[in-house]
Design a protein around this nucleic acid. Structure first.
Lengths: 246, 246
DNA sequence: TCAATAGTGTCTTTCAGACAATATAAT
DNA sequence: ATTATATTGTCTGAAAGACACTATTGA
């Protein structure tokens, strides 16, 4: 069952099985205190009427990562720099032969972490786009293998919050430690001790206070909080890791 | 810059940019006490004479994961079960438009952890296959973007050893704790305290002693060691994690 | 005043790392 | 005896988790 010499040495440019390559996006954000995912409603068969992850073809002249960035901008209006490794990350590639009933499609799934979505996207059918909390989305029947992709993407982000500074991606440029804590609680679905959270985050050096700034308390009162910013726009490995409770 | 409705709703089966999809394998093993990678020498242009990762086309009727498993069997003789999630894992997908000068190729890289390689592979040109320690391999100029893939694969395995029971994949069915420790030391390139290693491994429950068995000491003597086996053939998350020294 | 959130201090348990000490083999 | 490796025991410091306490706002 050894491969022929041509296949072993390289690729024969004239005879290869043609595939379509797409990118699918798991766009996550915190909405109403819940980790939520951006889904679009399909208008055509197969899976017409079903919710699906946004995505599209990789074009002949762009890299797979560029295609993901382009699709993110088209679907959400979020523009990311090419060297911004944090907001959009490759998740995994899904390549079962029957995952699209019409043709052979290999999809490179990505996960995007966004702070908040621009209210409307010009040139796009806004009615077909919705934010669904992930628990509800996982209970639904999604198009293609998008339920599997979504599950993997959520687990990926939950792990990443333990080891990197990526939680600040869900926050605006300036945030309080309470807001940052609510990100962890929404993603992990747990409650965190306020005092211990503060100590760990400050020790990890991923945030720095903005001198002379304070939050304004909500309508129900409360002491105003110091505002912080992320020390780096790049995702940083945090040491010691920030383990989620079990 | 919005995508057209057809692209948004799905894929047009008649007009898509055709891609070749390949799998590339980072086959790692411990050889002479050093973490080593399996490389093949290319016979044809481009990159003729350069060392490269083994790999090949995904066939029209097989999944991407099946293709990786097939290529692993062809290149090394190692046969893995379909439900064996540990020995062969997807790493990442590399899709820069110019990564193959002849045509558009998207490659799904995988990492394989093998205990030892069968001495010869029938039907394959054994002379073109070599085991190179990873430090040396990373210093060489490899074909395509295989140096990047190799670097990512090594880092992936180093991380996995911290969180899973995958180190036993580098060992035979029965092994001593000293052998298992030397796996960690080879992969991480560090020395580990013998006593602390023992406590952590035994507490993690990833190995179990084989009653009534002992290793036979080498020619220079030494106390014979208890033999262990992995408690599960599946990779297990270990808690607490097993952090590598910094 | 109370409710709500921010921030500080401290105690206990767990765990990682260092290292001493003992055990059992080959030479 | 010496060397080499396995195995056990113990100490120390760092960090996690629990939780009491104080601080500052709005209503």
């Amino acid at each position: 069952m050894a491969s022929c010499p041509a296949a072993q040495d390289g690729y024969d440019p004239r005879s290869f099985p043609p595939f379509a390559v797409t990118v699918d996006l798991v766009v996550l954000t915190i909405h109403d205190g819940a980790l939520s995912v951006l889904l679009v409603e399909r208008g055509v068969e197969p899976f017409a009427g079903r919710l699906a992850l946004p995505g599209g073809f990789v074009q002949p002249d762009e890299s797979v990562d560029d295609a993901a960035r382009r699709e993110l901008a088209e679907e959400t209006g979020v523009e990311l720099a090419r060297n911004d490794a944090g907001g959009l990350q490759q998740l995994a590639t899904y390549g079962a032969p029957d995952r699209d009933p019409r043709m052979r499609v290999v999809s490179v799934a990505h996960v995007a972490l966004v702070a908040d979505l621009p209210p409307a996207r010009a040139g796009s059918d806004a009615a077909a786009v919705s934010l669904v909390d992930v628990a509800g989305a996982l209970r639904r029947r999604l198009a293609f293998d998008h339920r599997t992709i979504l599950r993997d993407g959520i687990e990926h982000v939950r792990r990443q919050l333990e080891h990197t500074s990526l939680a600040t991606r869900f926050c605006a440029a300036e945030f309080t430690l309470g807001e940052l804590r609510s990100v962890y609680e929404a993603v992990w679905g747990t409650e965190l001790d306020v005092a211990n959270f503060r100590r760990k985050v400050l020790a990890s050096q991923v945030v720095e206070p903005i001198a002379g700034t304070q939050s304004t308390p909500g309508p129900s009162g409360g002491r105003p909080a110091q505002l912080y910013r992320a020390t780096s726009s790049m995702p940083t490995e945090i040491d010691p890791p920030f383990r989620r409770p079990r």
